[in-house]
Design a protein around this nucleic acid. Sequence first.
DNA 1: CACTTGAGAGTACGACTGTTCACTGACTTG
DNA 2: CAAGTCAGTGAACAGTCGTACTCTCAAGTG
Lengths: 213, 213
Amino acid sequence: MSHTVGVRQTQKLRTRQALLDAALGLLEHQSLSSLGLREVTRAAGVTPTAFYRHFEDTAALGVALVEEALGSLHGMIGAVLAETGDSEERLDRSVELIMRHVGEQPAHFRFIAREQHGGVGPVREAIAAQLRRFAEEVAAALAEEPESRGWSEEDLLMLGGLYVDHMVITASALLDAGPDGEREVAGVARRRLRLVTLGRLHWLDDADRADAP
Amino acid sequence: MSHTVGVRQTQKLRTRQALLDAALGLLEHQSLSSLGLREVTRAAGVTPTAFYRHFEDTAALGVALVEEALGSLHGMIGAVLAETGDSEERLDRSVELIMRHVGEQPAHFRFIAREQHGGVGPVREAIAAQLRRFAEEVAAALAEEPESRGWSEEDLLMLGGLYVDHMVITASALLDAGPDGEREVAGVARRRLRLVTLGRLHWLDDADRADAP
DNA sequence: CACTTGAGAGTACGACTGTTCACTGACTTG
DNA sequence: CAAGTCAGTGAACAGTCGTACTCTCAAGTG
């Protein structure tokens, strides 16, 4: 009860992280469903059997990678949206935020984009759950703004999801474009966001049509 | 020169199609980079060596599947957009068009969504090329409309890409939702499209900011 | 201090992979 | 009708895979 962490558990976590890092590196050029257990352990410098001490499956490892990639991003978008400034400034800040994160951890974002619709069920579900949380957070942040007066909760969630989907698309496009095409992709992303924001401002101009199915 | 097709080549095409069909079936629950050559031939009812008579790689088979899935869709979107009717009607028609195609050939769309960012380079590039063509076609169709007066070609392409990306997202969401959640997904897709269209109508309201990088 | 725990090593297993080679036999061609 | 083409067969190759064992020996425990 008194020990800080324990030398033993520290080493175990170190190996676990080595497995995660090795897997992330290998996943840059292939997808999770083709990632071999032995392949990961070879790259991590441990024996295949050691893998089982940390993960049951490569699928379980994938779920852990989802947590590592997206877990620390929560609250960040809400914080950016909560900052003051005109809508054009906030729009630029949002795109810059994505560019910075993608630039700092490209492998994580590539993994998310690749496995969002990939062949491993549990991983797909883990990513979907995280993105849904993001959409809810964005919707909550948007609800605080005066522009959202009169919006239904359902429509706010729709808009939040729209923003989140575009962040994923933008991140993926940035990775595909490489350093050279970054500026162009960022420009398109900004204009897309501006167009969506314009639509948002005129969403309640006419109440001409009911949405009940 | 006189023969219609030749019994021999007919049979060859039949086997080729059997390989494509078998692969598409297997790809419903895994991704292309983990698809084995033997696995495909086993499902198609031929020997592994016969595979090489039709494709060099499983990657080449993937590229052929992209062509099969998207090749026949060109021109369709432009046709829908070219029809008359108010914007709300056309919006409904677009969503219905997606729903119908996804319902008819779910495996094809699942494959496209999965491999769009998948681990096989040539297939990714083939899909990207096809989607770029779609975006250009949509942009060309939009350019014909009076609402596009004053739009730059660059902005039209941005908007076309936005619509195409949302079609892919909607198709993927429909597949994930299953028959039960179809109505809800379609409703969200319609509202998203409506919001984008609203933004489009107010895009040129103020010329307040230059886009030069 | 003796005793337990558990992360990782080492070995071995059967199953499966992509690719090669020589082959058959139905179709095509001159 | 004879000669040639070629889609598909069947056997064999060297690898890789996931998993089940036993074993070791440093860290934690009372």
